[in-house]
Design a binder for these strands. Structure first.
Lengths: 201, 201, 201, 201
DNA sequence: TATGAATGAGATTTCATTCAT
DNA sequence: GATGAATGAAATCTCATTCAT
């Protein structure tokens, strides 16, 4: 299909050069169609970029959700989710680049789209965290913001993905395992009432 | 000094509009000098942006390092470092925006600069991590990469900083404390040999 | 017939948007045929427009001439001609718009076509004028150009038609009667030797 | 001045090719400046055209009004006005072309500008007509619309100007005199109660 | 030294026009 | 014969960059 052809090319070019530096000329070259076709199928540059973001965000969300098994304990759900996430990043490097690097910087309608995606992720993680906390009988600790923690966790995962792009010699499972160890254990301690406090000024 | 004047204006404008959408015209307006002056003092747009990144990166690194007290245990060093980091982000929002949001998207010489900064941060954290591990007698665990963990930690800290920009009603100390609890505890477990492993496929 | 279908659509679209802003796409949509058909039946955009002008000019001329009764005095001939003209304008607004508003602006072959139509009209009026003059025994007055006067008269009629488009609450008969009173009376005076001359510098 | 330079070029090119076919490239060539200068001094194409219309309309109005002597009888005022008008058309052919031919066809803000100019003309003529009528004690004749008559008169004058462009061998005074004879005499008759009526169906 | 004035080069976008089916 | 799909070519507009003063 022409649409897929064009979107693939657009994602490739946007991921290489970023939104502004990408030229419709190059996209049409890579896609192997003429510029008017792009405008006819997917609209102006902004629309095209939006379509890219939406498709890639959809793909990623679907990949991650497909990897999560619903009937296992929360830690295993997070574990599977992380593996799927890194699997996706490995397979669709360009998608990830567009979503993570490019879509954030350009203002306008784009920020909203990616924010929505990240919100979905944070929400999802928050859910796991809360359900784990509940299972362990965690009382409400007003001191901590579930959303803040989830944001940090998501950020850690993203950053690790970025780091991975330049150190591709570890498997997705290993990455996920690092995060689980780093964070889940700490979270467990937290749940169990162990708290770190500064010991001196 | 002319240079400071120009760099201040450039950082302000770049942080507002991003690299590409920022116009030399606006920068010269904000700086209160004519465009040829910018070219004469700081070179073309790319150079100017590079100078911005370098200055802000230097400032940030210096702020963080200045906050770290060398003769306290590693956890307290990290704690102070995080507080300084969030202090810097709070005080120099624009610097942070330029470094985190804008510098990532543009390919070419910029990525290198920011990577360098992040590497410094990762290195720094790695040092703490390793020294903490050593103190506790952590054997080399080939399974874990100190650098990878540090990257994740740095990412978590950055993400939390971003999240903070939209939830400014918590103090820098609270943010740092969240991270310490989330990550340091987990790391401690790790150091002490407690490891999370998947319990089922 | 295909041709009529296309021409009707073209006249409608040209009259709405003008020559340049009219798009072949819209014409083909309105006509209900595909663009290649237009090119096959009536040629490129310029040709199409020419065909429109010719057809509408022909229609208008025919309508006016059909309204003129040959065996009545010149003033009555003019009167009937004017009524027919305004009748045509009322019934075929779009034709009139294309002929009067759009065809004038575009240089090239179009000007010629419309000039030809106007020349026919001027000629026709000239004939009446001269025949009226002759009947009244008007000596040749080198000072006046029958053609110039006719041009002015035709222009007055056209302008009034235009004015009418925005003040449609008077009948065609009234319009024609205004012109007859304004111009025919003056012309009569002229024919009878009464001449206006400037009374002072 | 650059502005005058550019406007002159723009009027020349617009008058040759019309609004749509005129290209900014050609205008900048004719003006002897680069395109960005045009945008900087006079804005986008639409603005540029508006500036042209306004300047030429202003010139024309001023020329005509300058020619009218206020303390002479209405017919002499009209006479002088017409002479000035044709004088202007003779001297500024291109201005006239832009105002009459080009500005009418393009919709949008332009129509308004030219309509305003024409309205001024019609108003002016209406004033003369009414004052002449009053002087002669003309009763209100509901049958005639002063505005309509004025529109017709203005149209006649415009048309004659157009005709003149191709028959430049008569002087402006002669043109004005034709119109005075054609219309003023007829109007006089009207004022004095002589009315033309159709004599048969 | 400092700048107002100027431009080259390139970006997006739109149509009239034509193949291939 | 008829059309959906495709494109070449050109138009408007912007901006980083530099003379001439």
């Amino acid at each position: 299909m022409r649409e897929k052809q064009i979107l693939d090319a657009a994602v490739a070019v946007f991921s290489r050069h970023g939104y502004h530096s990408a030229s419709m000329d190059e996209i049409s070259d890579v896609a192997g169609v003429s510029k008017p076709m792009i405008y006819s199928y997917l609209g102006a540059k902004e629309d095209l970029f939006l379509h890219c973001i939406r498709r890639e965000a959809g793909r990623m969300l679907q990949a991650v959700q497909a990897g999560i098994k619903p009937d296992v304990p929360p830690d295993m759900q997070l574990w599977h989710g992380l593996r799927s996430f890194y699997g996706f990043v490995a397979e669709y490097r360009e998608s990830w680049t567009v979503l993570h690097r490019q879509a954030l910087t350009v203002g306008g309608p784009f920020a909203g789209e990616v924010d929505a995606l990240r919100s979905r992720a944070i929400e999802l993680v928050s859910g796991l965290v809360v359900s784990a906390g509940a299972r362990k009988g965690l009382a409400e600790q007003a001191e901590f913001s579930g959303e803040g923690l989830a944001a940090a966790l998501v950020g850690a995962a993203e950053s690790l993905a970025d780091w991975w792009l330049d150190h591709s010699d570890v498997s997705d499972g290993v990455l996920a395992s690092w995060l689980m160890n780093l964070i889940w254990l700490g979270f467990n301690d937290l749940v169990e009432g162990e708290v770190w406090r500064p010991t001196e000024q």
